[in-house]
Structures are given as C-alpha cells and as structure tokens.
Computed example of a mutant assay.
Amino acid sequence: MASVTGLEGIIAAETELSLVDGEKGYLVYRGYEAKKLALNKSFEEVAYLLWHGELPTEEILVNFRAQWSAHRSLSEILKAAINLLPLECDMMSVLRTAISFLGTESVKEAAWPPQYESVLAYTALVPTIIAYKYRQSLGLQPIEPNPELDHVANYLYMLTGTVPQPVHVKVLTAYFVLAMEHGMNASTFSGRVVLSTQSDIASALCASIGAMKGPLHGGAPSEVLHMLDEIGNKDRAETWLIEQLESGNRLMGFGHRIYKTSDPRAEALRQIMTELASEDPWFDLAIHVEKLAVDLLAVYKPGRKLYVNVEFYAAAVMRAIALPKSLFTPSFTASRMVGWTAHLLEQASCNRIFRPQSVYIGEMPADLQQP
C-alpha cells in the first residue's frame, strides 16, 4: 500500500458543512456561497447555518442572539484560573488552557455526545477570554461584554473599551464569516480525530487550538502585514514588488495550497474594501498592491497561477482595526470555533474512530528477515 505524506488527497470523511473547490475557486457553506454570506449576513446568522443547516428567521435570530449573549461572561473561577497564567503567556496557550479548564468545570455533563449548549457556550466565550487576558497583559481593567453589541462588535469593544466604527465591524465581520469554516484542514481534522474516540468536546477543541497554534496553519497574516508595512504607500509599491521578485523572494499573501484560481474569500474582502477604500487608507493600499502583484507575478512566474489569498486581505483588515500581531491567530481562532464545533457535532452524528495505517520503513530483526 503506497503511503501519502500529509494525507494529501485522501478522503477522511463525508460532510454536509462545506465544499472547498480549489480548481474552480468555490467555497460553499451548506449550499450557500461563503463570499455572498460574508457580504450580506451577520456572524451569528452564518454560525446558525453551520450548526443547524439553515439560515435563521428573524424571530429565531433574536432568540439566538440572546442565547449567545448570555454565554459571553467569564465565571469568577475561570477568571481566577486565567489570572494564574504569566502575563507574557502567548494567547493561543491561554485559550488552550482556558478551554481545558472549562472542560473540568463541565464534569457533571455527559462527555459524549457533545451538546449544542456547550458548542454555543465555548464559541461565545473565546472572544471574552482573549480580550480579558489581552487587557490584563497591558495592565488595563478588563471590559465586560456589551449585550447590545453583536459578536464581532462586542469583541472589538472588549479589546478597546470603545464602541467600534461601523466600517471596522463590517469588514471584520466579513473576515470572520469567511474564516469560520474551511473543510478538513489540520485543526479541524485534529478535533474530529479526538472526538472520534468519544472524548469530550473540550479535549477535541484543545487539539484544534494546538494545531491552529502552529505557524504553518494560523500565522500567515502577520507576514503579509510586514510586507504592507515595508511598502508603506502606493507610490512605492511597484518598485518594492519588482525588487522582491527579481531577488527571488516570495510575495506573501499570494498562492494557496488548495486554490489554483482566485481565493473566493479574498474576492469578498476585496469587494468590501473597494466600497470602503475612501474610509481607510490601508484598504486602498491593499487593493492597489494586489493588482500590481498579480500582474507582475504573471510576468515573473508564468504558468504558476499565483493569485491573492485570504491572508493578504486579512492582514489589511487587522492593520485597519489596529489589532496587534499577537492577536491575529487568536482572532482567527475565535471565528474558526464555529467550524470546529460544527464538525464535532457532525462527527458525533455518524461516528467512527479514525485509524489510518502507516508504512514501516525501519529495520527488521534478523530472525524475521525473509530468506
């Protein structure tokens, strides 16, 4: 049996949650184009779609948002646990520890199968955990959740203590919707593997967070931000890009392991940023750099099909809302919690433990050698 390094191309499960078609540039959530959802729906609406299989009615949405808001606050015992962590502890480790601790708080609940109430609670809590530890690390008083704000606006509010600008809420909401689910990626697969053993949801989410923490999965936007900072303004863009290409350097934010055409998530963010370019100079710069880079890549790397990916525009979003680099991957995680938990519910509904094979290539004992 031939081995496949990294399991690339191997089908590990059937899913109703999303389709990632890299050749055609499709990203579909339960029958809806993700980029259209990002342009027209709230984070809560799309989360409901992934968890329940349909978009909520207005009446259901009102009740759903109330349930979501009710789960945002940290318990005093969880705050005490987070307070024990060093101020310099990286945020992904904080999240992993906090989720693990929450799992010990839930010992009275049945570990299997995962319950919808737990799915909602864990997802609603993650932004509060991030904001609480972030402000603590700066020596600032934590901000309690604002029940009048939606998921994304409340996250920004808890980080800064100021009700965010609508333009920033709109573009971050679009990014969060586009980042919440993306097929059988490393972190999603990790969570499903753990849950397939009939382990508890906290253990599965810790596995997903651990995978997301790795720089090959959750850290790309910070490199794009460095590139945009280096470019600085539109007048310098073409010269900088040509210098990088002629030196054989990679342009960060272009090309994707899956997408062989334009990344549909980047297309949606570009559309929003084009509409809002006059309101934020970083949006205007990002759009300009993308156009130049795609044209130059076609010349310098013909036939490579290198198009912009979501990390490119994610960096522009993070820069516009002044989110520190240390919060890029945690913010991605706050969004992806929806996709992870949707996969965990799906795994539980048709569970079979994952048990792939490996090919032994080491030495054999002498007495077992074939003649």
Rank of each mutant, 00 (worst) to 15 (best):
V4A: 14
V4W: 06
L7T: 08
L7G: 05
I10P: 02
A12Q: 10
A12T: 12
E14L: 14
Y26C: 13
Y32N: 12
E33W: 03
A34Y: 01
L37I: 10
A38F: 13
A47D: 00
Y48D: 08
W51R: 08
E58L: 14
I60G: 03
I60T: 11
R65N: 13
R72F: 15
L84E: 08
L85T: 04
D90P: 01
M91W: 05
S93T: 14
T97Y: 15
I99S: 03
F101C: 06
T104C: 10
A111V: 12
P113Y: 07
Y116H: 09
E117P: 03
V126T: 09
T128F: 07
R135Q: 00
L138C: 08
G139P: 01
I143L: 09
E144P: 02
P145H: 09
G161E: 03
V163F: 05
K170L: 11
V171T: 09
V171E: 01
L178P: 10
M180N: 02
A186E: 00
S199G: 08
I201K: 14
I201G: 03
C206G: 08
S208P: 03
A220C: 09
L225S: 10
M227S: 07
R236M: 11
E238P: 00
I242L: 13
G248S: 06
G253E: 04
S262G: 08
D263I: 04
P264E: 00
E267F: 03
F283I: 10
A286N: 02
H288N: 06
K291D: 08
D295L: 14
A298M: 11
V308G: 07
V317G: 03
P330E: 01
R336I: 07
Q347W: 03
I353E: 05
A366I: 15
Q370A: 13
Q370Y: 12
P371M: 11
P371S: 10
